[in-house]
Design a protein around this nucleic acid. Sequence first.
RNA 1: GGAGGGGUUCCCGAGUGGCCAAAGGGAUCAGACUGUAAAUCUGACGCGCAAGCUUCGGUGGUUCGAAUCCACCCCCCUCCA
Length: 428
Amino acid sequence: MAASSLDIISDLEQRELISQLAGGDELREHLASGSRTVYCGFDPTAESLHVGSVVPLLVLKRFQQAGHKPIALVGGATGLIGDPSFKADERQLNSSEVVGEWVERLKPQLGQFLDFDCGENSAVLANNLDWTRGYDVLGFLRDVGKHFSVNAMIQKESVKQRIERDGEGISFTEFSYMLLQSYDFAELNKRYNCTVQVGGSDQWGNITGGIDLTRRLYQNQVYGVTTPLVTKSDGSKFGKTETGTVWISSHMTSPYALYQFWLNVADADVYKYLKFFTFLPVDEIEEIERSDKAAQARPEAQGILAREVTELLHGKGGLNAAVRISEALFSGDISSLTSDDLAQLELDGLPCTEFRGGSKGIVEVLVETGLAKSNKMAREFIGNNAVNVNGQVVDSVDFELSGSNALEGKFCVLRRGKKLFHLAKFVQ
RNA sequence: GGAGGGGUUCCCGAGUGGCCAAAGGGAUCAGACUGUAAAUCUGACGCGCAAGCUUCGGUGGUUCGAAUCCACCCCCCUCCA
């Protein structure tokens, strides 16, 4: 068994992936002394996970690599309620149809990193709706609710601002979220002998709730590990770009966009992200950092990070497409691209809009492609020399795009600002 | 059910009859500088080429004129029952 040969907690600590441990040394001993079952839950709050949620998911995989059995739990039930932890305000409830749909989309995303066919420690995919759906209200209140003290619950840091801050409130629905998640832990303990829960640091309250409940219901000692919130050194929110949230679904965020996202990570954050988001050994990451510092030039780290993560999420094919587009747009001479190259860019996932007929004013094109929100903005961008067609700066709002000034009679590569590209394709 | 306090442009938050498309901050975007960084500086930031148009929870009303006053309604918060 690999478990004893690799101290998973020490590895996570080296990667700065541990925010808090519930159980401490006892947990280390627990993990070192055998193959354990570890779970992490993901609520369906959108049709895809975003990059931030990958951290605990990868931690689950790290546990599996260390010989433990991972359970990826999709919150078909908890997603119907809404986790209030550290949320400033009450969330809108989604319909059960929508949540059900999202559950189905999340399943393959959760599964893609884990190994479901490796014997003893094969991964398990679970849905908490399975044991919550049929639970009657009175039974739940008597069997589970009785173990929770409201006095203790309102002391939790995670709901404090909702309780104390003027102008905010919390519904009973959201307040009961903790009971459901706690019950999940207890239930997984009973079903799978699951003894460790992993989650983001915002989950601490819910995890300790589950530890207490499991002890009370089944007299079993279970443990918790939380991962730090992924932060950015400049204080802005991690996982957003000018075009919105960075999703792990390739339909929502193309491999190219994902690759660019990681390539643009700040120096101050990149080595930390290498530890968080890749499986590169820590000493290798430290070596990269050393050589970047010594080089006094553009760091290598962002490129490594972008390649590693893009391949991890979208495979070799996705990575190759992302690299092809990036090279064509950022280091090549755009006007020398052949129509095959351009068609490939479209296939590789560079956003593309089709235009019919003869010619089209640049302002209109910018708006239709989404490169500008309004005509007014489009004009402003042009005035700032921020718009570029096929490598040429557009200097007039009267500029017209047509088949005749398109590359190979068909494509125009539009650029707004330094990094935002879009393909305009002229068809008959 | 009662009493009080609120709902302003992406967010926070000023404004309390005309000078308000609405202070200030944040976020965001663009330009310069650079490494497709960071920091910094400059500019933009409801829509419209413009005249002008549409916004301040909703609907009506008062007024020459309303985000600001009145009526009703919806939603949120606090306390009481």
